[in-house]
Design a protein around this nucleic acid. Structure first.
Lengths: 226, 226
DNA sequence: AAGGTTTGGATTGTTGACAATTTAAGCTTA
DNA sequence: TAAGCTTAAATTGTCAACAATCCAAACCTT
């Protein structure tokens, strides 16, 4: 009766997770050129598994790699960040529609209760942009998985969200409109609960479009520099 | 004045390309369990670069890997294939809209001329489903890059298309409707040339939806078994 | 004979050393 | 002094051997 390994983690998996979170949290700044040996020392790995993890991260677009010249963290421009939201708009719109068609009742209830806790968080800790962002991430995460579209969830959770979160740590994206965002979330869940896929898609697209406009406005005001 | 390397290919890159095309062409059947040493012998590599390539392919969803148990080619079910087309519908719709906004004139002309050659191919080699599929791929490829949305093109070209092509080799997807598909392509390019993004998006979504329905019908007829 | 257990083989994961390439500093030359 | 070339150090890419883990066949037990 030994310890049952819930999910065997290989060294390469560890390296992948470590690097991914390090990039998302900003410990490795965008555009920063990083050496392999330096990374090995930092995360206590050898170069074999590290290189495998680097390959995965490059394939996901979080790193760029020039042969014999080293790897550096990807740095997306302001325009590219806005383009990311255009992609989110259509993909998450689809996710919302399919979630309305297929999300189980218990998951919907769980989603509603998380919105309640988000409401408390907003009232309690005003200005805690970090936790608001995490709550927002949680909401979108649940809808992506609720769509029961394997590949869609994989692309959203494995590609786009990491990229978005990477910049949310710096931008505090939805900082200015917490109540409005929560209200929009409520409406979306409402549509899902009523199994109105068309409405859920429309509301989700408008929700993400609003977030994009919010960022765009901040850029135009010159408050954010990349 | 030595040979100038247009793009330095490392062994891992070679391995990645070889495996990717092998999977797409069906030389490695879906669900087939493949050993590392076998692959090394087959493509004349060592296990170091191979492992890096395997990591990349796993990250892109073409392989599934269980620790210490080996890798096997991903096998998607009929439902998952149809879900893939749902994703294509929204993403390529966006690509068409953005292409209408930003595709340079010369690229549009090149796209039109490729459609002309596709027409010749259809008339000449009737039933050559393979080349038709390649022409179809070429069309969607050009629009994806024409959108000038880096991440969108990356996701379409790097993820979805390989997966779709992998099954097109077996299904000959658009085999039954070559002229109709070409006509739809023409209309889409027309909308792009007129810079009518909204129409281009609508037409592209309908085009892909028609392809999905075509596959679905074949499944319901029981002609295709997975 | 059926089920569980054990052991051997094979395969994967990891490591450290070696080879190839790039970058940048240092020197020469116009 | 600035531009170009040379060279050397540092870094990346590659290789082959070693250790850890899983799978399957054979064995024993009930």
């Amino acid at each position: 009766m030994a310890d049952v390994p819930v999910s065997v983690m290989t060294r390469a998996d560890e390296a992948f997770d470590c690097l991914q979170t390090a990039i998302v949290k900003g410990e490795l700044a965008p555009g920063e050129k990083i050496g392999e040996v330096e990374l090995c020392a930092r995360f206590d790995l050898t170069r074999g598994p590290l290189r495998e993890a680097l390959g995965r991260l490059e394939s996901r677009g979080l790193l760029v790699r020039r042969p014999h010249a080293g790897v550096k963290v990807v740095s997306v421009s302001a325009e590219e960040l806005l383009e990311l939201y255009r992609i989110r708009e259509v993909m998450e719109g689809l996710a919302a529609r399919q979630a309305a068609e297929r999300m189980p009742e218990d998951e919907i209830r769980a989603l509603q209760s998380t919105l309640d806790s988000h409401e408390h968080l907003i009232e309690q800790a005003k200005g805690q942009a970090y936790y608001q962002a995490e709550g927002d991430y949680d909401f979108h995460h649940r809808i992506a998985t609720g769509s029961r579209n394997t590949k869609l969830a994989q692309m959203l959770l494995g590609d786009l969200y990491y990229m978005v979160r990477m910049y949310r740590y710096r931008l505090s994206t939805s900082a200015g409109r917490p109540h409005m965002a929560l209200e929009e979330h409520r409406r979306i869940v409402e549509a899902i609960a009523r199994r109105d896929g068309e409405l859920a898609e429309f509301l989700m697209k408008r929700h993400i479009n609003a977030a994009r406009c919010n960022i765009e406005k901040k850029f135009q005001e010159g408050l954010l520099t990349f």
